[in-house]
Design a protein around this nucleic acid. Sequence first.
DNA 1: CGGGCGATGGCACTCAGTGCACGCCAGGCA
DNA 2: TGCCTGGCGTGCACTGAGTGCCATCGCCCG
Lengths: 221, 221
Amino acid sequence: MRDALVAAAFRLFLERGYEETTVDDIVALAGVGRRSFFRYFPSKEDVVFPDHERCLADMTEFLATGADDEPVRKVCDAARLVLLMYAENPAFSVQRYRLTRQVPGLRAYELSVVWRYERALAGYLRSRYAGLRDGILRADVIAAAVVAAHNNALRSWLRSDGKGDAEAAVDHALEHVRAAFADEAVPAVTGGPEDVVVIVARRGAPLWRVVQEAESALGRG
Amino acid sequence: MRDALVAAAFRLFLERGYEETTVDDIVALAGVGRRSFFRYFPSKEDVVFPDHERCLADMTEFLATGADDEPVRKVCDAARLVLLMYAENPAFSVQRYRLTRQVPGLRAYELSVVWRYERALAGYLRSRYAGLRDGILRADVIAAAVVAAHNNALRSWLRSDGKGDAEAAVDHALEHVRAAFADEAVPAVTGGPEDVVVIVARRGAPLWRVVQEAESALGRG
DNA sequence: CGGGCGATGGCACTCAGTGCACGCCAGGCA
DNA sequence: TGCCTGGCGTGCACTGAGTGCCATCGCCCG
């Protein structure tokens, strides 16, 4: 029933546009009652994002379990869960991307979905950084940066119709964030002509990590 | 007329809640026709954010003019414009904050407003970083981080009913971001005590630049 | 004084979303 | 077998946001 409604909805959305399709059209095509639509989807927008609720639950569970000695790495891995959901069904994801790009209402809805992911990441980081000076600020900024990097890579993959290696692109983007905010060492990547690199490491950081970051910052990693 | 509608709307929103107030109620209190409401505000949500359109225009203009030798500093200053708008009218801002916190629809709308600010910042940074390796990625991440830091400080100020120094809080938050992503030097600010610093400089870098970067990294710039 | 003209108001309409009650069907029980 | 019950789907009527269209009114200009 759910799947039938999603299928009917997307057929019509792609055929004649989102705003030009009414809920009555969808239920007529799916052969079900109008009232049933709103049983399965609280709003017309929800039918466009049928799998985010599950993915958000997965992310929350992921953040609540397992090792977490490196919070930044953990939230990067959590973000990758979202990419996996998109990559599960590239054709569907690309179609939805085109739809959300040209329908302001859907873009706004997507923002609220992304916001919930970001709050999940930030909530995890806040608890991990509790007690640190500016821990909450740091948590919010890192969560925002991770989401931005992930979405940057995801969108460029979607724009290329799902061709190319999405995972590699996301890994590359997240690596930038991880590098800028890593919990152990912070390689300084500057924007201008990069003839000077400064690396600052905490006392107590494993030497091999410092060496690794140095090599990476110097482009010889 | 605009102001009258905003005043009437907020009186009712605070009195009996946002969702419990219809547009008919607002126009009845303001003594104008229902059709005129939608002339001034495209939707019921817009009446809650009557000044963001102007602020966004101000920000866009600010980014398009003046010096821009340090892009990160520039976008931080642009973000401060938003704070100024909030600080112009603390009582109103606090009321609106309480409203948006408890009405999901308004929160979603606010997200789309924030998103437009973020895209303005990112667009500026994208043009400044054009040509750099991963320039677009860097632009998006920095814009997201700046917005997150700004909002973190802004919200904690709003939560305290507009007491305290909002500008100082935002300056502090933005300084974290500026430090992490500065265009010239990138001091690595981590959460803990930074009592050891390792400096690596590329062969061929001017010595004065190395000294400069080191001082900056050590927070003595 | 008459003719635009821009701002306002009224009216009817579409469509999303909701509350309510009815019908249907499956399963437990005497 | 007949009955009760609880959940699921459905039809219906209603509210309220948002829109298109046209009438109206005040105002400036020739």
